[in-house]
Design a protein around this nucleic acid. Structure first.
Length: 534
RNA sequence: GGGCCUGUAGCUUAGCCAGGUAGAGCGACGGACUUUUAAUCCGUUGGCCGGGGGUUCAAAUCCCCUCAGGCCCGCCA
């Protein structure tokens, strides 16, 4: 059984209606790790609904959280906003300076591109802006209960996390006159107000049913579970450590009279060769960057094929091609109605079911019955070649039509694929070994690939290049016919020509590549080879 | 110190929470095709399931111990 289905089975024991929640603080650029959180939720939601449960994905934007520090991508101007809730801070411009007259907030600035990415990934969700829930008084009851049970809260936090709290600690963080959570000392609790004094000695009070303050993180989380009715929540392994926020949260939520959601701890995504993702450090591949390179269904496949508790090495280089190949092969060879026969072992049957789930969960449209043939006919690898040798999109479509892979106009998803492929090829991530480099000189390696005996062949081919129609099939005819005529194994002829033109012993269909470059460049390359024999 | 995860073929891994003959893909090797080129098709190879012990008629799977690797424990997914 697939991990998402397994989770759905576990949830079925709790009830028929489920709210799967994801909570993310929009403190900076969103990255591929956040994609994992949301897609993990999304796949559980789909598995639930598929098995007859009623599930929904709730994306909680922790917009009430304060800015912790001036991150590396922000200018020093943000010093003044440290400790302020993210929804009240202006967004940064390209230099990282605050745009004071902007219509949107810091939180929205980072969230919006992420939402677009999720939309492309086919994720359907409901958004809850946490600061609005504070404004609307959704936290009032929980806050009251925590304040009334202050000793119990303190006991749980210190016992479970093992960290002592300050003497003057209260389960509440008011916002001061300067708009910041920092530097405030609580002086009392007079329902519905928390009274406090700031560092200048000025006193104030916050109404707990408003956004005049918030619950500290470890209390904020169970409060959200409680009023939203969260039944399942995936979270990073940092929260899963014993003494972490889940282990305190599951006890604290009992004070509120509800039950902790079913936990789904997940491992982090690492960039190949680099450390883990982090919003504050510079080692992020944003979801935008990932989505500008990787087709959405491949990104979904990456998440679907890996159980949450396995860490993922995200590699935007050569293994991306391999993963795409694997996905496409799985799709291409998949026969929905060919279940393993009854005599098959359970393992074989299970493997079949897991594969089916992987394919289904990788689709951007959850209820699609038939898979998009585009995804199965035109391989990622093939497209990587075409995109390199055909600079115009129209020529790519033309080529696909000629080779019978495309019988009508390209679909939007195919156009998107090509766009992403071009981005990838142009990026630093595209693997060197898959680059097609037209040779401007004769390499030593190439020189060794042929000898005096090939002179006539090369010479005649050179003339053929000059005279034939400059298209792929004509060029291919000349290469093959002349090779036969001169008694050269076709295989060898191609090795020689690949060396001369591309500087390596093999590559994509040579004639197609040559047809894309100016005829004279091809002739020049042969001339260099011929001259080297004199 | 506390805790989590992982260890299955050369590589990536499925199967483990419901114990019942170890499944893939890639690679390698062999073959077919021979206007044929990071191609396609067919086949072969390859695993004391990290190690030890226990439970069981039966263990990759459950329990205990152990070794190795990765990670978390202010905030972070």
């Amino acid at each position: 059984m697939h991990w998402a289905e397994r989770t759905a089975v576990n949830l079925a024991h709790r009830g028929d209606t489920h709210l799967i929640a994801a909570g993310i603080t929009p403190s900076g650029e969103f990255h591929i790790g956040h994609i994992r959180e949301i897609l993990t939720c999304d796949m559980i939601v789909r598995a639930c609904n598929h098995s007859g449960l009623n599930a929904e994905l709730l994306f909680i934007v922790d917009s009430m959280d304060p800015l912790r520090k001036v991150y590396s991508f922000l200018s020093d101007d943000y010093e003044q906003f440290i400790g302020h809730p993210l929804y009240r801070i202006p967004p940064p411009d390209e230099q990282g300076k605050p745009i004071f007259d902007s219509d949107s907030s810091y939180a929205e600035h980072f969230l919006n591109p992420f939402l677009n990415a999720l939309s492309e990934l086919g994720v359907k969700l409901r958004i809850s802006w946490n600061h609005e829930e504070y404004e609307n008084g959704k936290f009032e009851n929980a806050t009251r209960l925590f304040l009334d049970n202050r000793e119990e809260v303190v006991r749980i936090l210190t016992d479970v996390s093992g960290r002592p709290l300050d003497e003057g600690w209260w389960p509440y963080s008011p916002i001061g006159y300067d708009g910041s959570f920092d530097g405030i000392s609580i002086t009392g609790w007079e329902d519905p107000f928390v009274t406090w004094i700031d560092s200048d000695g000025k006193i104030g009070k916050s109404h707990i049913g408003t956004d005049q303050g918030k619950l500290p993180w470890r209390l904020d989380w169970p409060a959200k579970w409680n009023f939203h009715g969260v039944t399942c929540e995936p979270f990073g392994k940092d929260h899963a450590a014993s003494g972490g926020s889940y282990s305190t949260g599951r006890l604290l939520v009992e004070i509120l009279g509800s039950k902790a959601p079913h936990p789904v701890p997940y491992e982090w995504i690492q960039l190949k060769g680099m450390g883990p993702m982090s919003s504050s450090a510079n080692i992020t591949v944003g979801p935008l960057e990932a989505l500008e390179i990787v087709p959405p269904e491949i990104l979904r496949y990456l998440i679907a094929r890996n159980k949450p508790n396995r860490h993922i090495e995200f590699d935007t280089g050569g293994s991306l091609l391999e993963m795409a190949d694997q996905y496409e092969r799985l799709l291409a060879t998949w026969k929905e109605d060919e279940m393993p026969d009854e005599n098959a072992t359970d393992r074989v049957k299970t493997a079949w079911e897991v594969d089916r789930a992987k394919i289904s969960l990788s689709q951007t449209e959850s209820d699609k019955e038939k898979l998009d043939p585009v995804a199965t006919n035109i391989s990622f690898r093939h497209l990587s070649m075409l995109a390199q040798i055909r600079s115009n999109d129209v020529d790519v479509w033309d080529s696909l039509q000629k080779s019978g892979l495309l019988d009508k106009q390209p679909s939007k998803s195919l156009k998107d694929r090509l766009r992403r492929m071009r981005n990838w090829i142009a990026s630093e991530h595209f693997p060197e070994e898959n680059k097609i480099i037209i040779q401007k000189e004769l390499s030593d390696e190439a020189r060794k690939s042929f000898n005096q005996g090939d002179l006539e062949y090369l010479t005649e081919l050179r003339d053929a290049y000059s005279n034939c129609e400059w298209n792929a099939s004509e060029i291919n005819n000349k290469i093959c016919n002349l090779a036969r005529k001169h008694g050269i194994f076709l295989r060898n002829a191609f090795v020689i020509l690949y060396q001369i033109h591309l500087g390596r012993p093999h590559g994509p269909r040579l004639a197609a590549v040559l047809a894309e470059i100016p005829r004279n460049d091809a002739i020049d390359a042969l001339d260099r080879a011929i001259n080297s024999l004199d």
